[in-house]
Simulated assay, not measured.
Amino acid sequence: MNALYSLLFVFLLVLIPLFGVDAAHLRSIFGVCIPMTAFIIFLVGFIYKVITWARSAVPFRIPTTGGQFKSFDPVLFPQNKLDCPQTGAQTFFRMVLEVFAFRSLFRNTAVSLHENNGPVVAYKSSKWLWLFAITFHYSFFIVALRHLRLFLEPIPFFVHGLEFVDGILQIGAPTMYLTDAGLVLGVLLLLGRRLINPRINYISYASDFFPLFLILAVALSGIYMRYYAKVDIMAIKELTMGLVTFHYHVPDAITAPFFVHVFLVSVLMAYFPFSKLMHMPGVFLSPTRNMPNDTRAKHHVNPWNDPKIMAHAYADYEKEFGVPMAEAGLPLDNPENGVPHDEADA
């Protein structure tokens, strides 16, 4: 039902600009006012979220680790510098691989329960989710960069390079871009995973389905414009350059499919800062990723500690409670702390 509600809501979003432009003739509203308002909401909301996260206190070192910590015997116990980084440089390389290669998702494993002579939990590699995710994200990123040609004059050289590489397997005219197919395929696969897998479907809310359906609608409307509707690209360039230079003008040659596409993009921009899509900047501010695991090498003081309360080191704790610890059979760093005072004096 969550998927159905999300799909119906996206369908209603498609109908709004169709009626607003064709029936109500609100071309300036859908061509200028809504996109500019959405961009302002996106920018302000994005900055506000990032500043809020950056100002949040992180009193403890809580990096997620999955490998051997730096040992006194590096021969027998070599450190895993990416899964258990101890320095800033090691953490930096871990973040680079996380952001650009989705390394933690690549190492993802699937869990299954088998009934062979009793329940047995089995783990196996699960690379398909990583493949779907990286295809979707990189396709989306390249498509967004290619759209810079509509907002910049002259067009940057890297945009021409991206268009050449993206359309290297030219099929028909206009050129079919690989990222157009990759974006749609990636969204469909991620959406199908939530619909088909009963465990993922059970924990999926409308907030999980809606952005996928919305991004799919944005991609399909853009593909429809490029390959079927054949909109006037020069008129669109005139409109977008007017938005950038604050000289607003909506050419008459622009047709309804463009307004549908722009309205869906505007909804996505306005929705972005308040949704789960904010994981894009969030990964840079996640203490489970951006902090080195150096708690055994350095002493970190909790900034929330009351300055009136004196710290009680373990050595002092062992001196105070060494006797009952020894009687309970607990190991002591200093065995002398486990000897009663009268025996020690004697």
Rank of each mutant, 00 (worst) to 15 (best):
A3P: 01
V10I: 04
V10D: 03
L13A: 03
L13F: 03
F19M: 00
D22P: 00
A23Y: 13
A24N: 04
L26N: 06
L26V: 02
G31H: 00
F39N: 15
I40G: 04
I41V: 15
F42Y: 12
L43Q: 14
G45L: 02
K49C: 15
V50E: 02
T52E: 14
A54P: 06
A54S: 12
R55N: 13
A57L: 12
V58D: 15
V58Q: 14
F60P: 01
F60S: 10
T64H: 12
T64G: 14
G66Y: 08
Q68G: 07
F69N: 09
P74M: 03
V75N: 07
V75Y: 11
V75T: 09
L82E: 09
D83F: 14
Q90V: 08
V99P: 00
R103G: 01
S104R: 09
L105H: 06
F106V: 00
S112W: 12
L113D: 14
N116V: 13
I134W: 02
H137Q: 07
H137F: 04
F140H: 07
H147A: 04
L148V: 05
R149G: 11
F151D: 06
F157H: 09
V159Q: 08
D166E: 12
D166V: 05
D166R: 00
D166G: 08
I171W: 05
G172P: 08
A173R: 10
Y177H: 04
A181Y: 06
A181K: 03
L183A: 12
V184K: 00
R193M: 06
A206I: 13
F210N: 00
F210H: 01
V218R: 03
S221D: 02
E238H: 02
E238D: 10
T240R: 00
V244T: 05
F246S: 08
V250F: 07
P251Q: 06
S266T: 04
K276D: 13
L285V: 05
P287A: 10
T288L: 12
M291G: 02
M291S: 05
T295D: 14
R296L: 14
N302S: 14
N305W: 09
K308D: 14
H312K: 14
H312F: 15
A313T: 15
Y314W: 15
K319F: 05
K319Q: 14
E320G: 11
A326W: 03
L332M: 04
G338Q: 01
D342G: 10
E343W: 06
E343I: 15
D345H: 12
